[in-house]
Structures are given as C-alpha cells and as structure tokens.
Nucleic acid binder design. Sequence first.
DNA 1: CTTAGCACTCCCGCTTCCTGAGTGCCAGGG
DNA 2: CCCTGGCACTCAGGAAGCGGGAGTGCTAAG
Lengths: 347, 347
Amino acid sequence: MVSLTPRAERLLKALIEQYIADGQPVGSRTLVKQAGLEFSPATVRNIMSDLEELGLIRSPHTSAGRVPTERGYRFFVNTLLAVKPLNTQDVASLEDRFLADQDPQQLIESVSGLLSQVTRLAGIVRVPRRAGVGFLQLDFLALSPTRVLVILVAQDGQVMNRVIHPKRPYSPAELQQAANVFNGAYSGRSLEEVRRSLVKALRRDSEDMQQILRSAVEMAHQVFAGEERGEQPLFVSGESNLLAFPELSDTEKLRRLFDAFTAKQDLLHLLDQSMVSQGVQIFIGAESGYEALESCSVVTAPYEVDGQVVGTVGVIGPKRMSYDRVISIVDVTARLLSGALSHGQAG
Amino acid sequence: MVSLTPRAERLLKALIEQYIADGQPVGSRTLVKQAGLEFSPATVRNIMSDLEELGLIRSPHTSAGRVPTERGYRFFVNTLLAVKPLNTQDVASLEDRFLADQDPQQLIESVSGLLSQVTRLAGIVRVPRRAGVGFLQLDFLALSPTRVLVILVAQDGQVMNRVIHPKRPYSPAELQQAANVFNGAYSGRSLEEVRRSLVKALRRDSEDMQQILRSAVEMAHQVFAGEERGEQPLFVSGESNLLAFPELSDTEKLRRLFDAFTAKQDLLHLLDQSMVSQGVQIFIGAESGYEALESCSVVTAPYEVDGQVVGTVGVIGPKRMSYDRVISIVDVTARLLSGALSHGQAG
DNA sequence: CTTAGCACTCCCGCTTCCTGAGTGCCAGGG
DNA sequence: CCCTGGCACTCAGGAAGCGGGAGTGCTAAG
C-alpha cells in the first residue's frame, strides 16, 4: 500500500474529483484555482510528478494535465473517499420505490431499472438462485390428452412451469395421484435436493418404482431442465445511459461492452464473485478481469433474504463516476431490497 | 406512383444495390463498371438527373455520387425487388432452430435472438396478447396463513401467477372450495371475458355473492392486475449489432434508438399496426412515424396460431439493409413460427 | 438519343502554421 | 530544505492553405 504525505493525498483527491466532474485532464493551474489550494502551481507540479512516479496519475501527452490511473482510482476509493451517507431525502425517495411493488420476483427485477434511473448509469441485478428455496408443491394439469402442464411451486411463491408431452396419455385421476405421491415424497426438501433426487431416481431402474411415480419424476425433472436452460438470472437496465459518456464512445469497445450485456456470462461471474464478500465491492477497469469492462467500473453489493445472501445489485459506468454517490446508492438499495424481501418473506 | 423507363428502373436498382453493398455514394462511372451497363457514364448521368428530379436519389454534395432517398428505397422495395425465396439450405438451417424448443412461450421469445443472429441486425418479437386465449383453471395455494399464491392457467399452457395477501386467513379447504366455484363459473370463457367479468363482479355489491367467491374474484383479479403491470409483450435482441453501422454512429441518434428499445412503447405501436395487415410489412426511415427510428428500416411479419394472427416478428436495421434477404428471412421465420405454434397447439 | 470532351465544383487528405495549455527545471528567497 | 516565480520547451488541436480526384452538368458532334 502506497503511503503519501497529507498534502499529496489532498492534492490527489482534489485532482480526481475534478477529473470526475468534467472529464478533462487537469493541470496544475486549474487545480490550484479549483481546489483553493494555498500553494503555488509549481509546487503542485512537483507533487504531481511524485504522484506520477507512484503510478497514481499520468499525462495523456506532454502538455496535457494529469488523469487518474486505475491505481489512482483504487487509492482514491480505498483511502480518500469519505462515503457520506445519502441525505435523508434521497433515501426517502429510494424507499418510496420499494413500497409500490410487492411481488418479490418483480421487485428484484425492478431494482435494476431503479438503479439505472437514479445513477444515470447501467443497473444490474443478480436474481437469487432457486436452489436453496424450499419445495412446496407440484401439480399436473392436463391441457389435452398428450399435453401436460407441470407446475412447480416453491415456498417463496416462485412458480416454475412447463408443458410436456408424455409418451402415453394420462387421465386426470392418474395425474392427481402422481402429484400426491410426489408431493408426499418431496415435501419440505429444498429445490436443489429435489432436483438431485430426481436425477438419481431417473438413473435407477424403473422397476422398483410405481410406473405412475416414475412418470411424475420424469415430468418434474423436465421442469428443472427447462429452468436451467431458459433461466435469466441477471437483469441489466439503462445500457443506453452509457452512450452519453465520451470515454466510452469507441465503437469497437462499446460493441464488446454491449455484447457482454447480452451474453451475461462474464457479468454473472463477476457478480457471483461479489456475492461471497460482504458489503459494497468496487471493480475499477481491468480489475474485473474482463476485457469488455476495461473502460468501466462496477459497483456491487449483495442483498439478503433473512440473513442469507441470495443475490447482488450493482451499477456499471465509466471509470470516471461519482464513486461516493454511486456507492451510497448501491449500498442503500441493497439494504432496502434486503429489508423488503425479508419483511415480505416473514409475511 | 412514379413510373420509369425500364432503363431507369434498371439503373436505379443497380444503384441501390451497390449502395446497400458498400454504403458509399455511387457515381456514374462506378455504376457502369459495377453493373456492367452497356451505355456510357454520360448517359447514366442524364438518367440519374431524372431520378434525382423524381426524388428517388440525391447527392450528399456536388461532387459525390448519388444516394437513395427514402422514396427511392420505397420504390425499390415496391417494384424493383425480386424477393427470391431463400435457398433450401438457409430454410433448413432456420427450421433446425425451431425443432429444439418446444415450450411456446420460450419458442416465441427465442425468435428475436434467432432473427438477430441470422440477419446480424436487431430482432424484435411481439408476443401474443393473452386476452383471446381460453381460460382453463385457477388454483389457490396457501403459502402461509396470510400469503396465497394464485395460479391462473390458460388453455395454451401459459401460466400467470401472483402472491397476494388476503385480509383474513383462509384455510386450504376454503381456498379449494373457492377455486372450485370459480372454475365452475368461468370454465371455457376467454381470458378477456374472465377479466371483464371479474371487474364487473367486483363493482357489484358483495351481498349477492358468497363471501368466499367474492374473495376468489378479488384474488383472481389481482392476477390480471399484476399481468397488466409487469407484462413485457415485446422482446428485442441483438441491439449491439447496430453499433457496427457507421450511418448509425451518431451518438445522440443512437441514444434515442436505444431508449426506444428500452421504452418499447413506440415499437409496440408499430408492431401492433403491422399485426392488422397480412404478410411482410416494411417501414423505411420516417415512414414508421417515430423519430427514433428515422435512420432505420423495420421489416415485420405477423405470425399466427391456428389461423389467428397473434403477434409479430421483425428486424430493425439501417435503411441500407439487404431488403431481399431480410424480407425472406422474416417471412420464413414468421411462417415457421406459425407452423410450430399451431402444431404444438393441435398436440 | 447517345456519347465524348471539357470546364467546374467541392470533399478529402495532406501539410503547415500557430496558439495555448501545461510541463520540467533552475535559481533565488524565506 | 522547501516553496515559488520565471523561463524554455513540448505538443495537441484548430485554422488555413493546397493539390488531387471523383463526380457532375453542359455542349456539340455523331
């Protein structure tokens, strides 16, 4: 960890804040004026020179001002940033947004839009995996002789469903019976347990099972298969906000970035990483490890249901973002979301 | 409708095709060479002059070649375009994509991705309104004493659900009874009918209704309320493909365009418009009537379930797109989708 | 009616020049 | 020893100037 004189710290802080504000390289003269420093431009230049040697800032070219490096941002975020809590007004307006909605799934999805609106950046939300949730009930519904709707309900009110085409027709009575047996067998287990158990049951010979139950297992298993394929555990909103930033206007990079939003793979990994840690996490530029995000910073915070981390909310923007503001917003949002979900959960 | 000499038509066709191919204004010399015309550049210039007077082409500036106007594209599409059917290989590869998936909802959603991949433009899909579908069954499931999961199943296998918080606790038996009464009352009606009937029933005094049925009606109504709010009847994919086109690289326009993708309002209107007509529809530039789309063309085709138009698929790209190819693809895709859905429906 | 020829226009890319912002260094002063 | 004013130096970026080339419109001859 680099250590600086208080003056150098102050200077660096002023420089980065200035650069975040207007995106232009900042020179010694402007810095003195802007930040109201009590020493001269020449002194500032000397200090800047030191900071440059430490790799915290750099010049785009000889006669331009200085610009923060990723290391500079990192230092800024780690030690210079006073994360002032949001003023109560902002908190209140965020809270309002959480009152309107009640359905947990919808609430979670709406948070990405909320984040993108208040930060004017792109908002992301990692929705909970369903694995840990308790299994509540399974229903078979005959749509037609050869089409059966399988409905699987989890304890938190999530519903998974899928139309399947069984090999032979089943009567409603048979379906009812199968569902009963199935529900008896799996009641109270977690979805992940159910899924694993189903896989195992499918592998076993069908002989040691009632024919009807075997069919039920097969059908239920298809619900999971469908979920695994079609699941969208990640929501991104407000991508178009990023078009407003000149530093992201390189078409090729922009394309990569938007492809990453579509593919979601990389973002998912990133968010999963940040699920293990507690509190707000910040990935500056290349720190995320993904090329597409190298011109961006990502601020994330996990959220919980009844004390258990289940997902992550976050914001993606240019490296030059108002970290203090964004961090507060992401933090508060994650807390509010946790609160809303846990209340809803407790019923 | 403008009418041209055969030669002028041929010239215009060649010019537009050339421009579509490389995006550069095309001059008389290049046109002669490229299109293998048997008359001289000077003649071409004379004809071009006529075409310009008719508003079919224009010069970006004095010494540049000519570029099609929207009117030019329109004429091209209307009368010059020989929509060659896709070669069987392409059709086959499209067909493949329709085999893998079976769930209608998922299939429909995946089509927007499919279209964006094969055209390298943005794909859009308008999913069916649920109004016309038949109502199959309603279920109430007690999650906890104060939380009830309402599951509404339509005849086509679509499932709508919502967690509600009734004012007083209901026992599973009560819920079962309510569902039975409800299902008896509404079986066989369309969702729209059910919805309207629910609204009416809610207005009426509760006295002439069993208390339990009234609760059922209220709860069921909330499912529709939830659907109306959260419904996403439009899917867009491959937006990032559009970043590759220099004519769309104006940041401000790009932003508007992407905002339109997010807001979806305008696109929805456009697609609803094209649902009433049969077959492929083409909106060139300002023809769509939406500012955000003024640099784009939209190609759409409605798709059907059992002979009834239920939605629209389409492609959005720059005005300079390979209309013949895109039209074929959109057309075939709509047909294949209709086929897949109708088969699935018939069971 | 076509076509060759020709004068004309004007974008584009190239260079050149200049200006202004900003730096690095040095030498003097507290 | 550190700060500061001064000064020479660098360099991006805009303005101006300058062909070259692509393309046009017009005219006159075949």
